[in-house]
């Protein structure tokens, strides 16, 4: 049961307490660019959640078996080639290049899939679908997962990596949908001229970030509640 609790805590931590957009500032680009209408924003959020999960799955696999210090595959290659078994093989210097390559290719596949099966959605995304590649949120999730695969005594399993990725994606969807809802209302407001567009959007985001600061400490309460519930 402890596994379930820790998974739920990772999920809530990524989605609410340390929201990717409002706490870590990743994914600001679509957050400002695609948040004019709620339906497009929600679609964008779903696309990002989808890509983030695929990228986390692939990159966890690559990191766990190949890139982390002391991983299985390079150690086997090293020893087969006649290397000293006492030497620890560490390929983590390659991780950034591998991650961005994996993300770029999975975005390419998602784009082809959406274009073939959901043409209206594809048209409404426009240029922002290929731009998911350069969405910092996805690379950020992979880097967070990598951080938890460095220490061999407490390695993250695939389930934990996926909980973080899903939580991040859901948190992104939540933030961008909230933002789009507020911006739809803002269209009817009399905003001072120079602040129109990005300026007022950033100030609204600041107020949203303040609201999300209220989630700090929720994890302790949730952990306690889950502990008493599952006992």
């Amino acid at each position: 049961m402890e596994t379930v609790t820790s998974l739920i805590l990772i999920f809530i931590g990524a989605a609410l307490i340390n929201n990717f957009v409002l706490h870590y500032f990743v994914g600001i680009c679509p957050f400002l660019g695609v948040s004019r209408r709620v339906d497009t924003a929600f679609g964008m959020g779903c696309a990002v959640t989808f890509v983030i999960s695929i990228a986390a799955l692939l990159n966890w696999t690559f990191t766990y078996f190949i890139l982390r210090p002391g991983a299985v595959v390079p150690a086997w290659v090293w020893q087969t080639a006649g290397g000293d078994p006492a030497t620890q093989v560490d390929l983590s210097v390659l991780s950034y290049i591998i991650y961005i390559f994996v993300i770029a290719s999975s975005v390419q596949f998602v784009e082809m899939y959406v274009r073939k099966f959901f043409p209206p959605l594809y048209r409404s995304f426009g240029v922002f679908l290929p731009l998911i590649t350069t969405n910092c949120a996805i690379l950020f999730a992979c880097l967070e997962i990598m951080k938890h695969l460095q220490d061999p005594t407490k390695l993250w399993g695939l389930h934990e990596a996926l909980a973080l990725a899903l939580g991040g994606g859901v948190g992104f969807t939540l933030a961008i949908s909230l933002m789009a809802g507020i911006r739809e209302e803002l269209d009817l407001c009399d905003v001072p001229g120079p602040l129109k567009g990005a300026g007022i959007a950033l100030i609204v985001a600041g107020i949203l970030a303040m609201a999300f600061m209220g989630f700090m400490g929720v994890d302790k309460g949730v952990a306690g509640a889950l502990g008493s519930l599952l006992r």
Partner: peptide, 16 residues
Amino acid sequence: PPGAFLTLGLLLGMAE
């Protein structure tokens, strides 16, 4: 974090 959004928003407005 909120201070970052507010500062950048206001500075953008001032530049504009």
